[in-house]
């Protein structure tokens, strides 16, 4: 294993442990904070892979904006705290389904690639090149996504506004 693989493994382990805590924590605010750890480690993994623009966008949008939205949602809904109030009574079946999904995915990807066959060269993908690709080749999908975002935000405002009598 190379040094980058060790670094990536540490980041991935951190992210996975935090993700497990996200879905098992009893306190909703703790779950949101563990989500920050997971998302930050995913962002650091992007940076390690050389995708610097996606990495910083991940940090900015997910850690900076989406987690704050989640915290606002938690504050505005006053969720009860405790395992009984947060989780379904039977946790065995979801755990079995998740393990089956994991086993299926791991079997599929090891069957497709084998251990250690294709190696990702850590080529640097500079922000300028990504931006050029985004605004030349993919400018139409980009505009479509911006309209989707606009429509979603207007919809969210309309939905959560109090109705005037």
């Amino acid at each position: 294993m190379t040094a980058q693989e060790y670094a990536f493994s540490v980041l991935a382990l951190l992210g996975v442990v935090a993700a497990v805590r996200v879905v098992t924590a009893r306190n909703v605010v703790h779950a949101a904070l563990y989500l920050v750890a997971t998302l930050a480690s995913v962002g650091a993994a992007y940076l390690l892979l050389g995708a610097e623009f996606v990495g910083w966008v991940q940090i900015l949008i997910y850690v900076g904006a989406i987690v704050i939205l989640f915290l606002f949602g938690l504050m505005l809904t006053r969720a009860p705290i405790g395992r009984e109030a947060l989780d379904n009574p039977g946790r065995l079946v979801p755990a079995l389904i998740a393990l089956a999904v994991l086993a299926g995915l791991v079997g599929l990807l090891l069957g497709a690639f084998g251990w250690g066959d294709p190696r990702v060269e850590l080529a640097h993908a500079p922000t300028g090149v990504v931006g050029e690709s985004l605004f030349r080749r993919y400018v139409l999908p980009f505009e479509a996504v911006s309209f989707v975002l606009l429509a979603a935000l207007i919809g969210a405002i309309v939905l959560s506004r109090k109705d005037e009598p």
Binding site: T2, A12, V16, L102, L105, R119, V120
Partner: peptide, 15 residues
């Protein structure tokens, strides 16, 4: 250089 299965395993675990 990173083995691709390492990345894919991370993603499968998260999913």
């Amino acid at each position: 250089m990173i083995r691709l299965p390492l990345v894919l395993l991370f993603s499968a675990a998260l999913f």
